[in-house]
Amino acid sequence: MPDILILDQISKQFDQSKVINQLSFSVKGGEIFGLLGPNGAGKTTLVNIMTGLLNADQGTVTLFEKHAPGDNFARANIGLASQSLALYEDLTAAENLRFFGKMHALEKTALKTAVSQTLAVVGLEDRANQRVKEFSGGMKRRLNLAVAILHKPKLLILDEPTVGVDPQSRNAIMESIQTLSDQGHSIIYTTHYMEEVEKLCDRVAIIDKGQLVALDSVNGLLQTHGKNHRIRYSQNNKVITVDSDNPLQKIRELLNSEQQARISNLSVQSPTLEQVFLNLTGRELRD
């Protein structure tokens, strides 16, 4: 599959602060591409540049092989589910979908079909005529996703689509995303939930302070950056945790030591994406 999005040496500055700094990567057609980064890393700015809402100060963005963000083809083929619930609360679910469908130039029959199909995808077909302000948070999130996929975009950009929803709604949203991927949509997925990335994404980019710090598949990231296994055991009624890049050697040492008889509940945890993320971006708080 050819690259559906290519970012080349993108930089963006607000006032004196460089939010994106010489950032480059590409997204392949049909893949789910995870975009991770701590707060303030530049994810939303990057999303805005990809969608044409913002212009980059430097660098180029190429969409669908030859298009620029903001041109008609690009706009017609991008779906955006932003972090905020971009919905009209006083309209019903169907009215919201119909309105945004018209904005994507869907005509009567196609629009009607798209609305009913999309509502079915996100499990809201029974709530089509209910006003959004009466929806739960999870239902609103699902509708937010529905609006983004209504016009069957080639590239779907999901900016934290599961934030603040219950496990059932999150599961439903993730299933919908997987279905869309199976149908051939390319998806850029930003989130702070590492397990979602591990479960969904084919490749993951981690950015920090506007720069790309890692880009690989989840396994690749774990192998490259997840050096330490976590060994946990109880000794004298205390729980002890030790990180080691050679867990077998460490366990041998423990079992051969004089304290061996007092060790119990020994477990070894493989490196996680969260550990990788923290290794790469540090542990200091970000605001």
Binding site: T51, G52, L53, R75, S84, L85, A86, F100, A105, V147
Partner: peptide, 13 residues
């Protein structure tokens, strides 16, 4: 503020 404007600007309008 609610993000619908961004959504409209990303659309074909």
């Amino acid at each position: 503020n609610q993000g619908t404007l961004s959504r409209l600007l990303v659309s074909s309008a």
